[in-house]
């Protein structure tokens, strides 16, 4: 235990104290932070563990992508603040969840998907399935990254329609 604490001290991580922090939006969509009398404008949020712990270990970075604080967990905040941060993260980590898979075709080494997502219907291509179709959370969740770098999530493989599941089954490992 002692060892761990000293490691954190050593690393110079600055955990954000929710008591002192106030996040707010400026000009509609630009996140700002008042902290301990200081104001940080146009800050960015990054998830450290985006799939397993999307609400924990949030890195708060300034305009030059330098970390100013680390948020231990969104649950430390008031619902209203947590909501604001959650929305910002959602927007940055835009990854629609796939509800239906209409077709999966393999052509010339590329996989073509036609799916229904939480953001609407979409057709996309994957190149190199091994890297771009990943199972996480012990295989329950699937992340798909298309040729443009867009991310799509299948929230729970077990809850998919059987025929949809059969379409992607060969590519899952």
């Amino acid at each position: 235990m002692e060892q761990k604490i000293s490691l954190i001290n050593l690393s110079g991580i600055k955990y954000l104290d929710p008591e002192k922090a106030h996040f707010y939006l400026k000009n509609d969509q630009f996140l700002c932070l008042d902290y301990d009398g200081e104001t940080y404008e146009n800050i960015k949020l990054h998830r450290s563990i985006p799939f397993k712990l999307p609400d924990d270990f949030i890195s708060v970075q300034d305009m030059d992508s330098k970390e100013i604080f680390l948020i231990r967990s969104l649950y430390q905040f008031t619902p209203e603040q947590a909501n604001l941060l959650g929305q910002q993260l959602h927007k940055r980590y835009f990854s629609p969840s796939i509800s239906r898979i209409y077709s999966v075709k393999q052509k010339m080494g590329y996989l073509y998907f036609e799916v229904e997502t939480s953001a609407g219907r979409k057709v996309f291509a994957l190149n190199d399935v091994t890297r771009n179709l990943r199972r996480i959370d012990d295989g329950a969740r699937i992340v798909i990254i298309d040729v443009d770098g867009n991310r799509y999530i299948i929230e729970d493989v077990a809850r998919m329609l059987p025929k949809d599941f059969r379409r992607i089954e060969p590519y899952l490992l």
Partner: peptide
Amino acid sequence: MVATVRLYSEKEGRL
């Protein structure tokens, strides 16, 4: 952003 990009305008410090 991580999975999206936004186009914004900056005029006299206003984003």
